[in-house]
Design a protein around this nucleic acid. Structure first.
Lengths: 156, 156
DNA sequence: CATTTTGTTCAGTAAATACTAAACATTTAG
DNA sequence: CTAAATGTTTAGTATTTACTGAACAAAATG
């Protein structure tokens, strides 16, 4: 089959895969995401992904599910044609920021439960946890604000 | 040996371990970090860590090295006493934010190299990558500013 | 110098993970 | 209905990873 995509595109896909792997997400998920960033058209089916990326359909199925779950891609179905397609989710990055806030909250709460444990201890010992709590409370408050600023700046 | 630390402290340590694991860092590294957040004194030796956390010295050695590398703890040596101790790094969280900026930069650069690939394509196809580039450029610029605001607000 | 105390490195292991390939299910088209 | 196309689930595999325990190295103490 005519499976000759330019060298550079393959390399791009592979780079995205490696970056994802570095950040703890399976490389294949990164490859899928990478391809969906440059594919024409922007929406691709499971079969197309499997062929272009030389991966099994099972792998594509699992990893698209993962990418949907973390909010980076979405499943769409086109009116007439075949079954379903995947594409980069238009608001992917903003939503990722929101997820980041959830993590930050977890750290803030952990710091607070630690402070409860050290309730009766001298300030010197509590300092570590107070700093952890305060900075996370700060970002928990400011990150959504920053994200909102982004959305309005670009939105117009 | 008198190894009876309160229930709640063990649970705290285990919770930090689980959160770390969730974020892709080995659980044992999280346990070490958790214990260093509540230990008295705040600095602990490899041997102490191994005993409290019921882990092998080898594991402690590897994981402290990891934690130092990511900037969360530091190695200190006390004047008279034994060899070296570990403690939470005073500026840990701010430095972590800086590292986050490095990742964001990687995404921005990836988006740009993708845009180079689609240089001659129609705008419709370039949109995905432009959005990815722009939001990452935004945070690459704003995150350090936010962090600086934190440092001055608390610094006084 | 010999002994103890402390930390690192290394070899081995058990469990988790990222896949593949094939069986199965479901829809679409003739 | 039958056949083709598409996607999911499952079973199996190979690799990676997070550990342990022991050998080793280096320094401090007597």
């Amino acid at each position: 089959m005519g499976n000759e995509q330019p060298f550079e595109k393959r390399r791009f896909v592979e780079e995205v895969g490696l970056l994802f792997e570095l950040l703890g997400t399976p490389r294949m998920a990164g490859r899928i995401f990478g391809w969906l960033l440059i594919s024409d058209p922007p929406h691709q089916s499971t079969g197309e992904l499997a062929e272009v990326l030389q991966a099994s359909k099972g792998s594509i199925s699992t990893m698209t599910r993962l990418l949907i779950q973390v909010g980076l891609i979405e499943r769409i179905s086109l009116p007439a044609k075949r079954r379903d397609y995947f594409q980069i989710k238009p608001n992917a990055w903003s939503e990722l920021t929101k997820q980041r806030s959830v993590q930050i909250k977890a750290f803030r709460e952990l710091a607070e439960s630690g402070l409860t444990l050290l309730e009766t201890e001298k300030p010197q010992l509590r300092k570590r946890l107070e700093e952890m709590r305060d900075i996370h409370a700060f970002f928990e408050r400011e990150l959504p604000a920053l994200n909102q600023r982004w959305e309005s700046e670009r939105g117009q």
